[in-house]
Structure formats: C-alpha cells, structure tokens
Design a protein around this nucleic acid. Structure first.
Lengths: 235, 235
DNA sequence: GCATATTTGTCCGTATGTATA
DNA sequence: CTATACATACGGACAAATATG
C-alpha cells in the first residue's frame, strides 16, 4: 500500500479518475442539457429505442441514464409505459418555491454569520445579466439570473446546499419553459438582484433575506398566473 | 378516450398502477433497508455478481438499483471498481447537520405560520420513544427518534421537504453506525423531544425552533467526538 | 515490472408482460 | 378481442480496467 510514485503521478491518476465518466453519465448529461434547455418539451415521451439508437448506446445504458434523470425529477418513469419529460403542476411549483425560499434565505443568513462574504462572483453574475438585459438577449438574461441565485447560495459554503439548489433550479426550468416568453420573465428581477447585492455589500444580510422572500413570492405569483391563465404553448 | 368503466373499476386500476413497482425498485428497497440497518458496514464493497446471485436478479437489474442508491448517496460508485457503502467524513456529517437544522427549523416556523398544527403524530412518536427508552430497547429508541424528527418536518405539509428530510435521515444513519453504541446515542434526546412538543403545544414555535437549533448543535458535537476520538469499530 | 485472475462496463438477443389503437 | 408496439427482465458475451501474486 506504500506509494512509491511521486506526487505529480499520483495527482495525474486522480485527475484521470475524476475526469473519466462512464457512458451512462455522459448520456445523462446530454439528456439533462436537452431537457433543461427546453428542446424536449414537458410531457414528451422519451422512447428508449429511438434515443438509444440516436446516441449510439445500448438500451441498458440508456435505462441507467433514465433512472438518474428520474431521481433528479426531470423525467417521470411510468412502469411499462416509459419515461416522460416531467410536467409540473401548479402545486408542485408552489412547493418548489417554498423550498427555494428556505434554501436561499438560509444561505444568506449563514453567509453573513460567518464573517463578511466574498461577493465577487455574485456581483459578476448581476453585471453580466444587466448588460445582457440592455442588449435584450433574453436567453442569456434567464441563464444569468439563475446563476446569480446559485451564487447566492454558494456564499454559505455548503456543498449540500449547493447541490440542492442546483437540482431545484433544474426543475424550475421545466416550469419556465411552459411560459411562452421565458426570457422576458426574468428581466424585472435583474433590478431586484442588483438591489440584493447592494444590501449585502452594506452588511444588511437580514434585510436582504426579507427582500428575497418577497421577491420570490412575486416570482411565484407571476409563474402561477402563467399556469392558470393562458395555456401559452412554448415557442 | 371516453371511459365506459364505472368509478370503482377506474380507481382499482389506478391503485394497481401505483402499488406495482418494478424489480429494480424492489431490489433498491431491500438494499436500502440493509444499509440503513447497518448490516452492510460503511466501506463494504457490494459485489455485483454475489448480490445479483443472492437476490436472484440479473446484473443489469441490480445495476439499476445501484444507480438509484448512488443518487441517494447511500453508496458511492467508483468507475471500474464497483459500488461501496458510503463512508461519511466528519466534514460531510457537519454539512449534513447544517442542512438538517435548516430543514427542521424552517418546518417548525412554517407549521406555526399556517394555523395551529396537528401534533398527534409527533406526540405519538415521543411517547413510543419514551416507553422504549424505559425498557432499554435502544434500537427502537433510535428508530423512533428519527421518526419523531420526520414527523416534525411533516407539520409543514410540504412533500418536497418531507422527501428531503427522509433522504437526510437515511444518510445520517450511516454516520450513526460508525459509533459503537448507536442505540444509547439517542437516549438523552428523548427528553428534549418531549420538551419540544411541550413548547409546540403552547404555541411557542419560535422558542421550539431555537431549542431545536441548540439541540442539533449538541448532537453534532457528540457525533464528531465519536469520529475524531476512538475509532470505535462497530459491533 | 509483468502476467494472471477477477470484476466491472457495455452491448446484444430474446422471452415475457403490459398498454393501447 | 386482437394486434401491435413497447418496456421489463434475463442471460450471455466480450472488452476494458483493476487487483493480485
């Protein structure tokens, strides 16, 4: 068990081990990307045979990928019927926002509790979103808005909280895609994001937490209106 | 699409659909049970061939179960080396408790916010734990303690929060099994559980939340001492 | 450092069961 | 009710990586 190899060799080995992923994982990533990007609309059935064929992998491997996506709640698995891109109900979206509020607000409080947080990544996300909004690049605005919130949670330095937030946002993308113009949806929140940053920069974490709470409440209302109101078919 | 069947037939069909699960799911349940009960010690490698043979399922099916357990973080999957029962580090246990505190305390606040919560299930869990503790049935005490906390979260009526808590506790069991006497560990907390219930019964949800916070802080310290201190081999 | 045995990763063919037109 | 399409599960095969002596 004694390691006769020098440090660089060991690290190179580790790196290879971490970098290398199996086919199933790669397939999972591809499908996740397609789903969160909205290219597979919610409700779509994902045929085992067609996708396995298209990606050039066996059905066994694809099934492993489906299980993983099912656990991430991006697809639902109906026995003997196949997997479908998840269709969120209004209740589920509400529940998601409840959890989102808990996670994000807790993260802010935690971040402030352990000294002054480093806000550079958060600030970066807001600024990029601001310029993207000016240039009306809505798709980028949406992506950067979500990244902003991910960075907010990252301030708490908790791997598990980060992971939880990542999954939450992936699921929420499903909800956004139901709306016709998922891009503009995020636009008004860029301003409020900036506001949040300002509060944090002045050490007012509790105020930021409260503002974030009402912020998310508004966003949820807007989303729910899109659900109950017009059945705005995407694209 | 018109449904000529009567209501009871339709419901019976639905019921069957919900109840039936595939082999992979059943295998997952069996393994989860074995792992959380501590019969597979953390670090143990789970051989595909042996387990598939023992359970009478094919390797492909077992692998699907492994993926599911991996996503629940009960096992880790090392490429070309197999799956191992997860070994938690001290950092991971701390992080786990951080999330646990967020989830449980938030649940208490949420429960109080939406009217007076129904405490019957919570009370039940405490009382059963109390009698089990008197009779020194430590294994039951442990189970009931965890159930108590699950019921606490259930007060918030959030499916997602429930699910999150369930997974959290399953992972925590891995940590408990590292200690020599995981049973007695829970004993002092039965008293504090009763205390929490009393606070809730008097509508003092905020006080309960604060008490729970220091409660969990103590439990974590105790756990970490077991980690860094004696390498108490299980059994 | 090398050769070997073991184990996993991936794919295929097939038989069975299930859902739906 | 039948036929078709599809998912489920199995067992076998071989390649690739790992562990062992």
């Amino acid at each position: 068990m004694t390691d006769t190899r020098d440090m660089t060799t060991v690290l190179a080995d580790e790196r290879r081990r971490l970098a290398r992923v199996g086919t199933a994982e790669r397939v999972t990533e591809i499908l996740r990307e397609q789903i969160t990007a909205g290219r597979f609309a919610p409700g779509t059935r994902l045929s085992e045979e067609k996708i396995a064929d298209a990606l050039g992998v066996s059905r066994n491997t694809l099934r492993e990928a489906f299980r993983l996506l099912g656990h991430e709640k991006l697809v639902v698995h109906e026995l003997n019927r196949g997997v479908f891109v998840r269709v969120l109900t209004a209740e589920e979206v509400s529940d998601l926002y409840l959890l989102r509020q808990i996670v994000e607000c807790s993260a802010l409080v935690l971040a402030a509790r352990s000294g002054t947080p480093d806000l550079t990544r958060v600030v970066n996300a807001v600024e990029q979103a601001e310029t993207a909004a000016v240039e009306k690049r809505w798709h980028e605005v949406a992506t950067l808005d979500l990244q902003f919130h991910q960075e907010l949670v990252a301030l708490a330095h908790s791997p598990r909280l980060d992971d939880l937030m990542r999954r939450l946002l992936a699921e929420l993308r499903l909800a956004f895609h139901i709306m016709s113009s998922s891009g503009q949806f995020h636009e008004p929140y860029v301003l409020r994001n900036r506001n949040l940053v300002t509060l944090l920069q002045h050490g007012k974490a509790d105020d930021a937490s409260r503002e974030l709470q009402s912020y998310l409440k508004d966003a949820l209302s807007q989303l729910l209106r899109a659900f109950t109101g017009g059945e705005t078919t995407a694209e």
